[in-house]
Design a protein around this nucleic acid. Structure first.
Length: 392
DNA sequence: AATTCGTGGAT
DNA sequence: TATCCAAGAAT
C-alpha cells in the first residue's frame, strides 16, 4: 500500500497514504490551544486524585480505570483501589481475586486481569522500574495507543498526543468535519504543545468532558469558540457524525441458588478469557428454545458442574443490560438430588459458601442483585424452616 | 476491520 | 422505555 506514495509529492488521494495524512490545522486553532485552552484548563481543571502525585503507577492505574469510564464513576473505585494497592509491588503480590473484588461493579473486567498481569511484568523488569518509553509502556497488557500516550505524557513528560472520545469530538468540531482515526492522530499531533504534552492532553479531554459535550455543547462557556469551525457553522452538536449501532439481542437465562443443607450455596468461577472472566456467579446458562427455566437449570448444572439438581421455585427475576446484549435471568432456588460433588467441568472453580460470606467474592452486577434478594430473604425469616435446601 | 468486552448517567 | 456513549483494548 505504501509503496508508491512519495512523501515529497502531494498524492491525489490521501486515502492511499499509510501514514501522516495531511490534515489542515489552521494556525488560529493552534494559537487558540496555547492562548485560550491551556489557561482555561489551569483555571477550570477538576481536582481529581490521579492529578495529584503523578507517579507512573498512579497515572497508569487511573488511565486503565478511565477506559470507557467517566471520571465520576471511576472516582470511588480509584480511591479504594489505591488504598488497597498503594504500590506496584502490593498489586503484583496480591491474589487476582482481590484485584477483581476491588474492580467489582466497574465493568470490563479484563482491565483488572491485565492490570494485575502487567504489574507482575513490571516487577520482572530491570530494577523493577516502570517502562519510560512510549513503546515500552505500549507493550504492557491492557495498554493501547491511547493509554500509552497518556502515561508517557502525564508521568514522563514525553511529547505524545492522545486520541480518545473527547479528543475526537473536540478536534472534529474545531476543524468542522468528521475525521478518520488516522487523520485524528495527525491533527492531535499537530495541536500538541511540545514540552507540555500532558497538560495539553488533559486540557482537551477536560474540555470535551465539561464543555464540548456530545449532545448539548456549552459553547457560551468555551474558550475555543472563536477558533471553532463547528461553532461558526451553527450546529456543533452534529459533529462528529455517528455510526448508528444495531439493536442489542435479548437472551433468556436461568441460574440456580443451590443449597447443600448446611446453609451453604454453590458458586462457580467463570473462565478467565470469557466475558466477566474470573468473576464468581450463580451457575446456570441460556434457556434453549422449547425449554423451561427449570429444565435449562438442570441441564446447565449437569454440563458445567456434573451435578444433578432440581428447581425448588423462583427466587427472583433479574433484568440486566450488558454492553452488547441484555438478559432476563430467572433465578431459581434449587437442591441436589444426590450427593455428587460439584466438579468444575466448564468453569474455573466451584465452591460452597455460607450466604453471609458471599460478599467476599467478586460478582457481576446481575448476580449482586441475586445476593441482595438472598440476604433480605434470610434475615427476617431466621427461625422458620430454613431454605429450599430442605434437609429432608 | 468489525466484534466483543460492563456499567451507569443523560436525554 | 430506549438509545447513546464514556480518558479503549484485544482479537
Amino acid at each position: 500500500m505504501r509503496r508508491d506514495c512519495d512523501p515529497g509529492r502531494r498524492p491525489l488521494c490521501w486515502a492511499v497514504m499509510d501514514r501522516a495524512p495531511a490534515v489542515k490545522v489552521p494556525d488560529p486553532v493552534r494559537r487558540a490551544v496555547r492562548r485560550r485552552l491551556l489557561p482555561w484548563f489551569a483555571e477550570n481543571a477538576r481536582d481529581l486524585p490521579w492529578r495529584r502525585r503523578r507517579t507512573p503507577y498512579r497515572v497508569w492505574v487511573a488511565e486503565i480505570m478511565l477506559q470507557q469510564t467517566r471520571a465520576d464513576q471511576a472516582l470511588p473505585y480509584y480511591r479504594r483501589f489505591l488504598r488497597r494497592f498503594p504500590s506496584m509491588k502490593s498489586l503484583a503480590v496480591a491474589p487476582l481475586d482481590d484485584v477483581l473484588k476491588m474492580w467489582e461493579g466497574l465493568g470490563y473486567y479484563r482491565r483488572a486481569r491485565n492490570l494485575h498481569r502487567a504489574a507482575r511484568m513490571v516487577r520482572e523488569r530491570p530494577g523493577g522500574r516502570f517502562p519510560d518509553t512510549l513503546e515500552g509502556i505500549r507493550a504492557l497488557p491492557g495498554v493501547g495507543a491511547y493509554t500509552a500516550a497518556a502515561v508517557a505524557s502525564l508521568a514522563f513528560n514525553l511529547d505524545a498526543a492522545v486520541v480518545d472520545g473527547n479528543v475526537r469530538r473536540v478536534v472534529c468540531r474545531l476543524l468542522g468535519r468528521t475525521l478518520t482515526a488516522r487523520e485524528l492522530e495527525a491533527a492531535s499531533e499537530r495541536l500538541l504543545v511540545r514540552g507540555r504534552a500532558g497538560e495539553y492532553n488533559e486540557a482537551v479531554m477536560e474540555l470535551g468532558a465539561l464543555v464540548c459535550t456530545p449532545a448539548a455543547p456549552a459553547c457560551d462557556a468555551c474558550p475555543m469558540r472563536s477558533a471553532c469551525a463547528a461553532y461558526r457553522s451553527g450546529d456543533p452538536h452534529t459533529l462528529p457524525e455517528k455510526a448508528r449501532r444495531g439493536k442489542k439481542p435479548h437472551r433468556k437465562v436461568a441460574a440456580g441458588v443451590v443449597f447443600n443443607g448446611r446453609g451453604e450455596v454453590l458458586i462457580a468461577q467463570r473462565n478467565p478469557d470469557d466475558m466477566l472472566g474470573g468473576l464468581w456467579e450463580f451457575p446456570g446458562g441460556c434457556i434453549e428454545s422449547g425449554e423451561t427455566a427449570a429444565e435449562a437449570l438442570t441441564r446447565e448444572l449437569r454440563e458445567e458442574l456434573g451435578m444433578e439438581v432440581c428447581s425448588e421455585g423462583l427466587l427472583i427475576t433479574v433484568r440486566h443490560a450488558y454492553s452488547h446484549f441484555s438478559i432476563e435471568m430467572e433465578v431459581h432456588l434449587a437442591s441436589r438430588v444426590n450427593r455428587a460433588p460439584p466438579r468444575p467441568l466448564q468453569c474455573a472453580a466451584a465452591r460452597w459458601v455460607p450466604v453471609d460470606r458471599l460478599r467476599g467474592y467478586a460478582f457481576s452486577r446481575a448476580d449482586l442483585q441475586v445476593i441482595e434478594a438472598l440476604e433480605c430473604r434470610q434475615a427476617p425469616v431466621s427461625g422458620e424452616g430454613t431454605t429450599a435446601a430442605g434437609s429432608r
